[in-house]
Design a binder for these strands. Structure first.
Lengths: 203, 203
DNA sequence: GTCTATATGCGGATAGAC
DNA sequence: GTCTATCCGCATATAGAC
């Protein structure tokens, strides 16, 4: 009796799911919800386009899941930092936020989602997510109004610098370099290293 | 001899152009570059879809023009404020920035553009535009590094609140209301009034 | 669990009339 | 200066095989 070997690399549903979600985070981050296609996601994950749809039902459901994971990841990291102590909490949370660039696409997905307030379903979820972060800062981290304002504002500026791919011009454009230095009080190196890694990978 | 009256309201090219650009600012603001369609723009301007394309060549060219005008408008207002005096410059510029919500769509178009850094042409223009604003703050307004950082960050937070349509939930969601109050140090009324006006108009 | 084939609808752009 | 008609390509989603 002979056993046919699986001709195509099969995976457990859960693992494949993670793979696709990671690819989707990347693609949605680069092109936004409307600009990204399920086919781009599929190619990035190494599967067929219909399979991506099959797994999540619709493109919208896929985006919602990507958004949810981005928010979970963000708040998870923040709670980890908080659990480690309350001294210098603001700077440590800020540093943790910047380090999320390691998971490529998180800032970008959030930024795109934050621009979709007019969408009845994604916009509603994005507002809710933003408010969850605000609640964390107020209730768990104990931030006062100005501290929360300034923290959130800095976060949005970081999103903007990432969204603009400003680090791509760090070496070629002195003005971009200075602007980056001004915008990111510290931990600029994290963003720059990530930018380099991405460009290298694009080749 | 009889003269046929123009059956359709004709306009000088320049006026029609302004009309379409205003409509496009609105539509691109709501749906972003990829999410907006030239047909939506056409309908909002009361003209046919092919005519919109005809006027600007491509959807991309139209967006670039909308982006350019948003930046011109922004820097124009900033220079006006600067020309009026240098006392309390930061708060006055901040107020001027918020008041741009009067021209509906400017913040939104900017925010969407700032998320398009990966686009070779729009992304490049968006980076350049952001840097022009930074240069203004540094060279013309005389801001120091931290002042520039905090001003730009606050601006991006304002963009985010507008992008999320957070003001839509000011009355129904106490958390959203508090978050708005915290995020916008002052001149909250401007955003709220605008939100109301928009919702009324949508009926 | 994953693919191929394909239906279907929509969006950008062109041609050409008035 | 502005429209109608229309082409073509692309994106999501479905059907069904393996």
């Amino acid at each position: 009796m002979t056993f046919a070997a699986p001709p195509i690399p099969r995976m457990k549903a859960e693992d494949r799911r993670e793979l696709v979600l990671a690819a989707a985070t990347q693609v949605f981050g680069d092109f936004g919800y409307w600009g990204a296609t399920t086919d781009q996601v599929a190619r990035a994950a190494g599967v067929s386009q219909p399979y991506v749809v099959r797994m999540f039902g619709t493109k919208e459901a896929l985006f919602l899941e990507v958004l949810q994971r981005a928010l979970d990841h963000l708040l998870g990291e923040f709670r980890r930092v908080l659990a480690a102590g309350r001294e210098e909490l603001g700077p440590r949370l800020g540093r943790a936020y910047i380090e999320l660039v390691g998971d490529r696409g998180i800032h970008l997905v959030l930024m795109h989602a934050f621009g979709m307030g007019s969408d009845p379903v994604i916009g509603a979820r994005a507002r809710q997510g933003f408010l969850e972060v605000y609640e964390f800062l107020r209730d768990e981290a104990g931030f006062g109004p100005e501290q929360a304002q300034s923290f959130l504002a800095s976060g949005m500026l970081i999103n903007t610098m990432v969204g603009l791919r400003m680090s791509d011009e760090f070496e070629s454009n002195p003005m971009a370099a200075e602007c980056l230095i001004v915008a990111l009080p510290e931990k600029l190196d994290i963003v720059l290293d990530l930018g380099k890694a991405q460009r290298a990978e694009a080749r």
